[in-house]
C-alpha cells in the first residue's frame, strides 16, 4: 500500500492508482472531463490540475496522469490550482459553449462566459470516444487525426467508419453531445462517422435493437459465442 497526503489528510492507495482515482475514491472532488474509470488515462482536458510536492519540489500537474506515490503531498485547492482550472475551463467553454455539461462545470467554477470567440464544433478533443471504441469495444472505428489546432476525431480517410458496429458507446460517453445517433425505421445512423447500419428487429416486440454488424462482431470476438438464436430477441424480451 502507498501512503500519500491530500489536502492535509493522509490516505492509503493501491499501487497503480492515480491521484485522481485516490481522491475520487475518498470523496474529494476534483473537476475532470477526459477521465473515465474504465479507460486509460489521457490527460488531454487539463482540468484536474493539482499541486504535487515530491522530493521538496512542487509542480502543477494533472491528477489523472500522476501515479499515487509514497509520501507525496497533494493540494487540490491552492490559488495556483484554482487559477489554472478556471482558465482551462474557459478554454474548454469556448470549444463547446452550448454543451450543458460543460456549462454546468464552468458555472460551478464561477465562469459564465468565455472571452474567446467560440471556435468550435462542440468537440473538446477529450478522446473519450476514441478510447472507448479502442479499449472497451475493440472496434477501432475512429481515431484522432491531424495535429495541433487541426486535430479532430474522425474515421479513417474521413470516410464511412467501416469498422463501426453502431454500438453507440461513443455517443453515450461524449460529454458535449458532439456525436449523435439517429434511429430511422430499420436503420441506425451516426452522422459524424458517416455510418448507416441495418438493424435487426426483435422477434417478439418488433423493436429494432441491434445492428447486424454488431452481431457479427460479437460472434467473431467472443470466445464462447451465445447460441445462434440469442440475438432473435431484445434484452427485454429475451
Amino acid at each position: 500500500m502507498i501512503t500519500l497526503w491530500i489536502d492535509d489528510k493522509q490516505y492509503e492507495a493501491a499501487e497503480g492508482r492515480t491521484i485522481l482515482q485516490v481522491a475520487l475514491d475518498n470523496g474529494i472532488q476534483i473537476p475532470h472531463l477526459c477521465y473515465h474509470e474504465n479507460l486509460s488515462s489521457f490527460g488531454g482536458c487539463r482540468l484536474c490540475q493539482v499541486e504535487v510536492t515530491r522530493d521538496n519540489k512542487t509542480v502543477l500537474t494533472t491528477s489523472c496522469t500522476y501515479p499515487a506515490m509514497d509520501g507525496i503531498i497533494v493540494r487540490t485547492d491552492t490559488p495556483k490550482v484554482k487559477k489554472a482550472r478556471r482558465f482551462v475551463m474557459e478554454l474548454l467553454l469556448s470549444l463547446a459553449p452550448d454543451a450543458p455539461k460543460i456549462q454546468d462545470l464552468a458555472q460551478e467554477m464561477g465562469i459564465v462566459a468565455t472571452r474567446f470567440t467560440p471556435a468550435g464544433d462542440n468537440c473538446i478533443r477529450c478522446g473519450l470516444c476514441v478510447r472507448a471504441c479502442d479499449e472497451l469495444v475493440g472496434a477501432h472505428a475512429i481515431t484522432f487525426a491531424h495535429r495541433g489546432a487541426q486535430r479532430m476525431v474522425e474515421p479513417p480517410f474521413a470516410e464511412e467508419a467501416e469498422n463501426c458496429i453502431g454500438c453507440g458507446t461513443c455517443v453515450q460517453i461524449c460529454p458535449t453531445g458532439f456525436i449523435s445517433m439517429e434511429e430511422q425505421g430499420m436503420e441506425r445512423k451516426i452522422g459524424k462517422w458517416k455510418r448507416t447500419l441495418k438493424m435487426k428487429a426483435c422477434a417478439k416486440c418488433g423493436r429494432p435493437f441491434i445492428s447486424f454488424a454488431e452481431i457479427a462482431f460479437i460472434m467473431d470476438k467472443v470466445k464462447n459465442p451465445p447460441p445462434a438464436d440469442w440475438f432473435d430477441y431484445c434484452s427485454d424480451c429475451r
Binding site: 488531454g44 478554454l91 471556435a119 478522446g127 484522432f144 495541433g148 489546432a149 487541426q150
Partner: peptide, 12 residues
C-alpha cells in the same frame, strides 16, 4: 501547427 493537440491548454 506543431503542437500535437492533445492538451487543451497548448492546442488552444
Amino acid at each position: 501547427d506543431e503542437s500535437c493537440g492533445k492538451c487543451v491548454s497548448c492546442r488552444e
